[in-house]
């Protein structure tokens, strides 16, 4: 009786749950689907009264060629890689030793320092925008890659995330490394980082997505088109082309989103590998 009733509500609940999840997925995916759909259509079809998923007349080649030739789209994407790659490398370089010191070393003021890190999480980037802008201006770095990269080199979120993961690494592993002759920095790079790979990858995904999509800061510090990051590029593109030509604009948007999606899917596989790896024993 009891098991049957549970099974019955279970089925109903499962249907409901999947319906809800399906609705959520639809809402999330719909803009992407429309973006891709539009990027394949000629302009006449885009505003046609009846919506079709696939174009009657394929215009993909033209749209994508326009996207890459009317504006230096490849350059924007390359800039995206340069900026996000540099930022992530710097963030790792700072976050891992900081997290190690906060999680595994004993020193006076450690708890205070960690409170400051937590406090740092609460400060929105816009608050520090003007002082940072003035600083970069005084250093003569405005309108350079450095202007986009420097303010993001230290990620308090990264420090926090890695510290939480490092706490779960057994102290004996570090002690064994010390006896084996590793110094503290060698422990960070040779022991802690590989052990914390799942967390590093998770942080990497978040950092890449955030900095790839970052619009506010590059818009402030960069004027030159050849330094534009992908979101800025889309805006340049929209300024130059939009209103008349949504097909190439959506093609550009698709091209800009694609690296993120691909990176995310690849990392997700790694991530699952990492999570299912037998824990440190």
């Amino acid at each position: 009786m009891r098991t049957r009733s549970i099974a019955a509500t279970g089925l109903g609940f499962q249907l409901f749950r999947h319906a809800l999840l399906g609705l959520g997925a639809f809402l999330m995916l719909a803009p992407f689907v429309i973006m891709i759909s539009v990027s394949l259509k000629p302009s006449g079809e885009i505003f046609a009264p009846e919506f079709t998923l696939l174009p009657k007349q394929w215009h993909a080649w033209q749209n994508y060629t326009d996207a890459f030739t009317k504006q230096p789209l490849a350059r924007y994407i390359l800039n995206g890689f340069i900026v996000t790659g540099s930022i992530f490398a710097c963030q790792l370089l700072t976050a891992l030793p900081c997290a190690y010191a906060l999680a595994k070393l004993r020193w006076r003021g450690r708890e205070t320092m960690f409170m400051l890190v937590l406090l740092g999480l609460l400060i929105p980037p816009q608050v520090t925008a003007i002082p940072l802008y003035i600083l970069l201006w005084q250093l003569g770095l405005l309108n350079t890659y450095a202007a986009i990269i420097l303010p993001s080199t230290i990620s308090v979120f990264g420090i926090f995330l890695m510290r939480q993961f490092f706490l779960t690494v057994p102290d004996d592993l570090i002690n064994a490394a010390r006896l084996d002759g590793l110094g503290e920095f060698a422990i960070v790079w040779r022991i802690m980082m590989p052990t914390a790979m799942p967390a590093v990858i998770a942080f990497g995904v978040l950092s890449l997505v955030w900095n790839w999509n970052e619009f506010f800061w590059p818009l402030i510090v960069v004027q030159s088109e050849h330094l534009a990051t992908p979101p800025l590029g889309v805006v340049f593109f929209a300024n130059a082309e939009a209103g008349t030509n949504y097909g190439p604009l959506m093609a550009a948007a698709t091209a800009i989103t694609a690296p993120l999606v691909i990176a995310f899917l690849a990392a997700q596989r790694w991530f699952i590998d990492g999570v299912t790896m037998t824990a440190v024993k």
């Binding site: 004996d172 002690n175 064994a176 084996d180 590793l182 590989p194």
Partner: peptide, 30 residues
């Protein structure tokens, strides 16, 4: 002296093997 300069080796209760290294890499590290 820090641990590495004392020239003693320790076997831990948990063994403390480096989980992402192979057996040979574990033994080779010192």
């Amino acid at each position: 002296l820090p641990p590495k300069a004392r020239d003693v080796a320790m076997v831990f209760q948990s063994y403390a093997l480096y989980p992402y290294m192979t057996v040979a890499e574990n033994i080779a590290l010192p």
